[in-house]
Computed example of a mutant assay.
Amino acid sequence: MARATSFKALALLPAFALAGLTLACGAGGNGSGGTAPSAGAPAPQEIPAETKDAALAAMVPAAIAADGKIVVGQDQSYAPNEFVDNGKVVGFDVDLGNAIAQKLGLTAEFQNAAFSGIIAGVGSGQYEMAMSSFTINAERLQTVDMVSYYSAGTSLAVPKGNPDKISLDDLCGKNIAVQQGTVQVDDLTKRSEDCTKAGKPAINMQQFQAQTDVNLQVQTKRSQGMLADSPVVDYAIKQTDGNVEVVGQPYDSAPYGIALKKDQGDYAKAVQSAVQAIIDDGTYAKILAKWGLNTAGAVQKAELNPAVS
């Protein structure tokens, strides 16, 4: 399943650090843990502004609309979905978030935060929306409303050439990096338990707060592999000039969801309708193309609190 807060206990962070090498979240760069695109690279496609829909704007609670903006919580270390480039937050979720706000007659203000604390921030009212590649799952739907907008799976990435010849079925005893608070933590925990039950060594799960650090672990061969959302792995491969490669196919595909505080009148319906309008007018497809996201994960219908397993 794609990126989602894990409600299980986090394993201890590895004792070593990437002194002098770590590209910290929000510190700039392309979010891959690699080098920024060359100066001669084509400029990203500009996404046309959305036209305000007065009927949808009227559904936004006055407390949110009063200052003319929607405060959006996200972990800006997850390229190409949300990351900082040359001091500016960019990405798939950012472009879509801007379009949603425009459709509602507002502007989006993106605030960087640790991934594992964003959902709680939505519940407390710190954020008026969360767009940070959150997977929709039954546990999360108990605490927030969610609007679906893309479907992604988990991919395994390794250093170029896969020097340790690992695969998803052969992670026992391996050093595998993941971002804290993601569903990949739960995935590796279960896989590690299966290893020990079979009399094999446990997986050495190496957790980091920022996805950029996870990417760099693999690129510098300090980890033998990493698990992350498929769009993130695909982007890391491109931005590291092939120094990272994928093994096998993405698995456990599930929808991303925009998280909203419950019991806010028609606000969630307004966001759902805004996403649907952006899909219908073609802007959604342009945003996918801009960030190179696989169209197989595109949704044709934005759903509010869809049924999930």
Rank of each mutant, 00 (worst) to 15 (best):
Y150H: 02
Y150S: 03
G153V: 00
S155A: 03
S155G: 01
L156T: 00
L156R: 00
A157K: 02
A157Q: 08
V158S: 05
V158R: 04
P159M: 10
K160F: 12
G161V: 01
G161Y: 02
G161R: 06
N162H: 00
P163Q: 05
P163D: 02
K165W: 04
I166P: 08
I166V: 06
S167A: 05
S167F: 02
L168Y: 12
L168E: 07
L168K: 08
D169T: 13
L171Y: 03
G173S: 11
K174H: 15
K174N: 07
N175L: 13
I176Y: 07
V178C: 05
Q179G: 03
Q179A: 11
Q180M: 13
Q180W: 08
G181F: 01
T182Y: 15
Q184D: 13
Q184H: 09
Q184Y: 12
V185E: 15
D187G: 10
L188N: 01
L188F: 11
T189Y: 14
K190Q: 14
K190G: 07
K190H: 07
K190L: 15
R191T: 11
E193D: 11
C195F: 05
C195T: 10
C195K: 05
C195A: 06
G199Q: 02
K200E: 12
P201Q: 06
A202P: 03
M205D: 03
Q209H: 11
Q211G: 08
T212H: 03
T212N: 12
N215T: 10
N215E: 15
L216F: 10
L216E: 15
V218S: 06
T220V: 15
T220G: 13
K221W: 08
K221I: 13
K221S: 14
K221N: 15
R222A: 07
Q224P: 13
Q224A: 09
G225T: 02
M226L: 12
M226I: 09
P231R: 00
P231L: 04
V232G: 05
V233G: 05
V233R: 04
